[in-house]
Amino acid sequence: STVKVRLGHLEVTLHNVSEEDVRELRELWKNGADEEDLRRWLEEWKK
């Protein structure tokens, strides 16, 4: 499914993403990950 995730002022649209992935991303964000960390996660996730 396609999910729009809003993290601060960063809005990311993920395609074919699982609930688990979204949860993981939100956890990262809650734990103080900055945009760099999130971008890195997204790069990994896209592979």
Rank of each mutant, 00 (worst) to 15 (best):
T2L: 09
E35A: 08
V5E: 01
N16I: 02
S1D: 05
V22A: 10
L28Q: 03
L7N: 02
S1Q: 14
W29A: 06
W45R: 10
E20R: 12
L38G: 00
W29M: 15
D37V: 15
V5K: 00
A33L: 05
E36Y: 09
V17W: 04
H9R: 14
L38T: 02
S18H: 06
V12L: 13
A33I: 07
R6F: 12
R23M: 12
E35P: 07
T13G: 01
E24R: 14
H15C: 08
E20G: 07
E20I: 07
T13P: 01
K47R: 13
E24M: 13
E11M: 13
W45P: 01
L14N: 00
K4Q: 09
L10P: 00
E27R: 13
L25I: 07
V12K: 02
V17K: 01
W29P: 00
E44M: 13
L42N: 00
V5G: 01
R26V: 11
L38E: 00
T2F: 12
K47W: 07
S18P: 06
K30R: 14
E36G: 12
E19R: 07
W41T: 01
K47V: 08
D21R: 07
R23V: 08
R6Y: 11
D37Q: 15
E35L: 11
L25C: 02
E36I: 10
V3Y: 02
H15Q: 07
L38A: 02
D37S: 14
H15V: 08
D34L: 10
E19F: 09
W45S: 02
D34K: 12
R40N: 10
N16L: 04
E19W: 10
T13D: 03
L14D: 00
D37I: 14
E35T: 08
R23L: 13
A33Y: 05
D34W: 04
E20N: 12
L42F: 14
V5Q: 01
K46Q: 12
S18T: 11
H15Y: 15
A33Q: 04
D21P: 01
S18W: 03
E11T: 13
L28I: 08
V12G: 00
D21I: 07
K4R: 14
V5L: 15
R40Y: 06
L25G: 00
L42D: 00
S1T: 14
L14W: 02
R26E: 12
L7K: 03
K47A: 12
R6M: 14
K46M: 15
E24G: 08
A33K: 03
E35G: 04
D21N: 08
W41M: 02
H15S: 06
K46T: 12
E44Y: 12
V3H: 03
L28D: 00
L14Y: 02
D34S: 15
H9Q: 13
W29Q: 11
D34A: 11
S18G: 06
W45D: 01
A33V: 09
L7F: 14
R39T: 07
H15R: 08
L38Y: 04
E43P: 01
R39S: 06
E44L: 13
T2H: 07
S1A: 14
N16F: 07
L38C: 02
H9F: 11
K46G: 09
R26L: 11
E24Y: 13
E27L: 11
V3M: 08
E35W: 09
L10C: 12
E24T: 15
L7V: 14
